[in-house]
């Protein structure tokens, strides 16, 4: 196990380094931030001073080298616009995004698994077919459109839920989240649902497919032949097998949940990293963009590692295979 984790950590470091190159050079090809940094009335000397101050006169590989040196000590550069460290700005906005992503993940699990299980156990019922049809919509409707519809229906027409912002937050166990207040919760529901929609559909399909397959297996027939109750067969024998792919895929999807929150945060004015990113892109605030992308890369790498470990814990066959290797 230790060897396995160590090997994966080295792989992860290489991935992060490669990505940093792609991100850094990629971002530096787009636009000229100088236009944004200086006022339109600035003279030539002023412009030259700004370029020098921000190190934009140096060759790009040298800029990259400075960036790497800084990154090694946790400094991803200062925001052109705010003048503050980019990392600090992003970390400041991260809890809101994480909260949104976790809320969406939670919805995907508590809605997706029971619905998928039901559709898998009773595939011929009309309600199951309705669930599956619904999941196709979940897959194919664009997130931004669904977001606008949610706002229109629940915020504008029905007036049940607020459409924008994060609402009141409260601190519990050192975590500040809107999850802990009524107002915050009511702000959270719509954006979380919007973000979760795709994942709910995914979990429904995975769970259903898993249930359909597992139910054909001899071990389920054998469990029935032992006289076990339906509850035990479904929630122990069936679920334990279905959960392996569901947990794996959900874990891997968590990264994309964070990445995709960009759209949802923009629609619902949710003050997270995604909203920060969009503003940074519009203003060509390169350090923020680079820092955001780097953090997403690292998140993905860490999530992958955690999922691999989780997977080996869930599936005894994999667990032992590792020990043997």
């Amino acid at each position: 196990m230790t060897v396995f984790v160590l090997r994966r950590l080295i792989q992860a470091a290489i991935v992060v380094l490669l990505m940093s190159m792609i991100v850094f050079f990629g971002v530096n090809v787009v636009g000229d931030p100088v236009d944004m940094l200086v006022s339109p009335e600035a003279d030539q000397a002023e412009i030259a001073r700004v370029i020098r101050d921000f190190g934009l006169d140096r060759p790009i590989y040298e800029q990259y080298w400075y960036f790497l040196k800084g990154a090694a000590s946790g400094d991803l550069g200062n925001s052109f616009i705010f003048g503050q460290p980019a990392l600090k700005l992003i970390l400041h906005h991260m809890p809101a995004t994480l909260e949104l992503a976790f809320a969406a993940l939670f919805m995907a699990i508590i809605l997706g698994i029971p619905l998928g299980l039901y559709a898998g156990l009773y595939p011929d019922r009309a309600s199951s077919k309705a669930i599956m049809a619904g999941s196709i919509f979940g897959f194919s409707l664009p997130t931004f459109w669904v977001g606008l519809m949610l706002i229109m229906i629940f915020a504008v027409w029905l007036g049940w839920l607020p459409a924008t912002g994060r609402g009141d937050t409260a601190t519990f166990l050192g975590i500040e989240a809107s999850f802990f207040t009524r107002d915050g919760l009511s702000h959270l529901i719509l954006p979380a649902l919007n973000l979760a929609l795709l994942k709910i559909s995914l979990v429904i399909r995975l769970t259903r497919a898993g249930a359909r397959e597992a139910i054909q297996q001899d071990y389920i027939k054998f469990a029935r032949a032992k006289g076990l109750s339906t509850g035990r067969i479904v929630f122990v024998h069936l679920m334990k097998n279905i959960m392996i792919p569901v947990v794996t895929v959900l874990g891997l999807e968590f990264g994309s949940l964070i990445a995709f929150s960009v759209v949802t945060e923009t629609i619902f004015a949710w003050p997270g990293m995604g909203k920060l990113l969009i503003e940074a892109i519009l203003q060509l605030d390169r350090p923020i963009v680079v820092a955001y992308l780097m953090i997403i890369v690292i998140l993905f790498v860490v999530i992958n590692l955690v999922v691999d470990i989780l997977y080996s814990l869930l599936d005894p066959r994999v667990r032992l295979g590792e020990q043997g290797a």
């Binding site: 001899d218 071990y219 054998f222 005894p316 066959r317």
Partner: peptide, 11 residues
């Protein structure tokens, strides 16, 4: 059952 590889729940 016939196939002992399939009758016990693998997990």
């Amino acid at each position: 059952f016939q196939d002992p590889m399939m009758t016990l729940n693998p997990v």
